[in-house]
């Protein structure tokens, strides 16, 4: 009993010592306000925290202000060899997990043409974030699922994309496109109209001019069509178009972030 008490005290003391350093750093935004939407390019830093699988932290220093952001929450995580475009909203939250000001929601797009020097920080007393299955995930085939009931309605589905990519983001975009395609198949839709968008209007981020290539709009639409094909929807009922200069949308998958809401594919499913 006494042994246990002492162990508890020791643990508490050690924890205090461990978190003393981070606490002193006063992790708060240098300039940014809570609620502000930020967009910047930086080289990511990996912090090797260990709270089980996928619990490492990702940090991004916004060079324009010097604020270190916690960008771990992004569905796409960084690659330590490449620069990232970070888009997110500043929130108050637990800065002791990773050691950065929390962005939530946050999107990371890996910029493969910009190399970075890889940098790994040790945990340094930060706890990391225990992995939990994202709420937006595809369920296995062996799980029963509910079919839509008639009367069927026309529905539009928006699929979000990372900057410059046509890859269906795991546990984000796949959730939406799976819903869209399954709906089309379940109701035996008479038509599906796909519109691929690309954000071709230039924006300036961290001194760089960013614009998506025009042909990306079509490539994104074609990925959606390939989903329909592989899931067994007849392609002769599919219409496909591409739209550049994409406008801001209210797509759910962008979680209210402005620029990410432009990068999308829309599937209009007509009964």
């Amino acid at each position: 009993m006494q042994g246990r008490f002492w162990r508890f005290v020791a643990a508490a003391v050690l924890v205090n010592v461990a978190v003393a350093a981070p606490a002193e750093q006063q992790i708060k935004p240098v300039v940014e306000q809570v609620g502000e939407e930020v967009r910047f390019i930086t080289c990511p830093i990996y912090r090797d925290t260990d709270a089980g699988r996928k619990s490492g932290c990702w940090l991004g220093d916004r060079r324009e202000t010097g604020t270190r952001f916690d960008i771990t929450g992004s569905p796409t995580k960084p690659d330590w060899n490449h620069a990232v475009l970070v888009e997110g909203r500043v929130v108050e939250g637990d800065t002791q997990q990773c050691g950065g000001v929390l962005l939530e929601p946050v999107r990371v797009s890996v910029l493969h043409d910009q190399n970075c020097t890889r940098h790994m920080l040790p945990a340094e007393g930060f706890t990391g974030r225990r992995f939990s299955l994202p709420t937006r995930n595809i369920r296995p085939l062996y799980e029963p699922r509910e079919l839509p009931k008639p009367p069927y309605q026309e529905k539009s589905f928006d699929i979000p994309f990372d900057f410059g990519r046509d890859y269906i983001v795991y546990q984000l975009s796949d959730y939406y496109i799976d819903k869209a395609v399954k709906y089309a198949i379940d109701i035996d839709a008479s038509r599906v109209e796909i519109t691929g968008y690309a954000a071709t209007t230039p924006t300036t981020v961290s001194g760089q001019t960013l614009r998506e290539p025009a042909e990306l709009a079509l490539r994104r639409a074609e990925v959606a069509r390939e989903w329909l094909r592989r899931m067994g929807y007849p392609l002769d009922r599919v219409k496909i178009r591409a739209q550049t200069k994409a406008k801001v949308s209210d797509m759910e998958g962008a979680d209210g972030l402005t620029e990410p809401s432009r990068r999308r594919v829309t599937l209009r499913v007509i009964p």
């Binding site: 830093i45 220093d61 060079r63 202000t65 010097g66 190399n115 020097t117 940098h119 001194g207």
Partner: peptide
Amino acid sequence: TQPFADQQPHLPLFRITCKGEPHPHYGRV
């Protein structure tokens, strides 16, 4: 120098762009 430097938001931050050879460890920027 980033990415290794501790956060120093109180200091100026410069961007260096190498015009000749890239830096062997940091690259061109």
